[in-house]
């Protein structure tokens, strides 16, 4: 469980998150959606304790960051580190003894190659694999499906469902609505630094329609395509 109470975050005079209060339960998958700049990444960074903030964030396991697997939108890799070494580094960081990386390499990544030479999708898969090997309790996946091929997207969806079954708490941000529909129990809509509404699974199709309406409206007609 992660509980956020009256979370405020500002950069100078720019208020990015405003009095956010929210509770993420165990064994549930939460989708966080919002337009670019709505504050999703800032929220994730606050939960990960990478940012100073006002308010409180508590968790059933503390310190929260030591049980958190954080997938960044664009994971960074050193120029001359192999996939296998990256996994080793992540395991070492959490004192996890893992020797058989090849067996657990379900994405068939070329672990002997430099990670920096991987494609965008491969990098994302490597980053996800690393977080899974760490045996985390909480997961934040910021755009886990971006740039990943369709087969791996299916695997990632199944992984998220498995994490849910294992009673983990998972937060996902994605711009691909269908992926959220397949994995989430609840979707929270973040707008201007505040959560506007929480939508349960049975109302996802209404949310999708509403989002389409707001985002697209008559913009396509405005293009005047002939």
């Amino acid at each position: 469980m992660i509980e956020i109470h009256q979370l405020n975050k500002s950069y100078g005079t720019n208020e990015v998150l405003k009095a956010i209060t929210l509770r993420f339960e165990e064994g549930k998958v939460y989708g966080i959606v919002g337009e670019n700049g709505a504050g999703k990444t800032t929220l994730f960074r606050c939960i990960a304790e990478m940012e100073a903030y006002k308010g409180t964030i508590t968790a059933s396991k503390t310190p929260l960051k030591d049980y958190l697997g954080l997938l960044l939108t664009e994971p960074f890799f050193f120029s001359k580190i192999t996939g296998r070494e990256y996994l080793q580094l992540l395991c070492n960081a959490r004192s996890v003894e893992e020797t058989n990386f090849d067996e657990r390499n379900i994405f068939d990544l070329p672990l002997g190659q430099y990670a920096s030479t991987y494609s965008t999708g491969m990098k994302k898969k490597l980053a996800i694999l690393g977080l899974l090997l760490q045996g985390n309790t909480y997961f934040i996946f910021d755009e886990p499906f971006n740039g990943v091929d369709i087969q791996s997207n299916m695997i990632i969806t199944e992984i998220i469902l498995k994490l849910k079954a294992l009673n983990k708490t998972v937060l996902i941000s994605s711009h691909i609505f269908s992926t959220l529909k397949d994995t989430c129990d609840e979707i929270h809509l973040l707008k201007n630094g505040q959560f506007e509404e929480a939508v349960q699974k049975e109302q996802f199709h209404e949310l999708e329609a509403a989002m389409k309406d707001v985002s697209i409206g008559n913009k396509i007609d405005q293009l005047g395509l002939k």
């Binding site: 120029s79 001359k80 580190i81 192999t82 070494e85 990256y86 080793q88 430099y114 030479t117």
Partner: peptide, 21 residues
């Protein structure tokens, strides 16, 4: 810089494995 150069530091990456290469 594409070909992987083996190093004796793989168990404790990253400074020496990257630096060595």
């Amino acid at each position: 810089h594409q070909k992987t150069l083996p190093t004796p530091f793989s168990k404790r990456p990253f400074e020496f494995s990257v630096g060595f290469r």
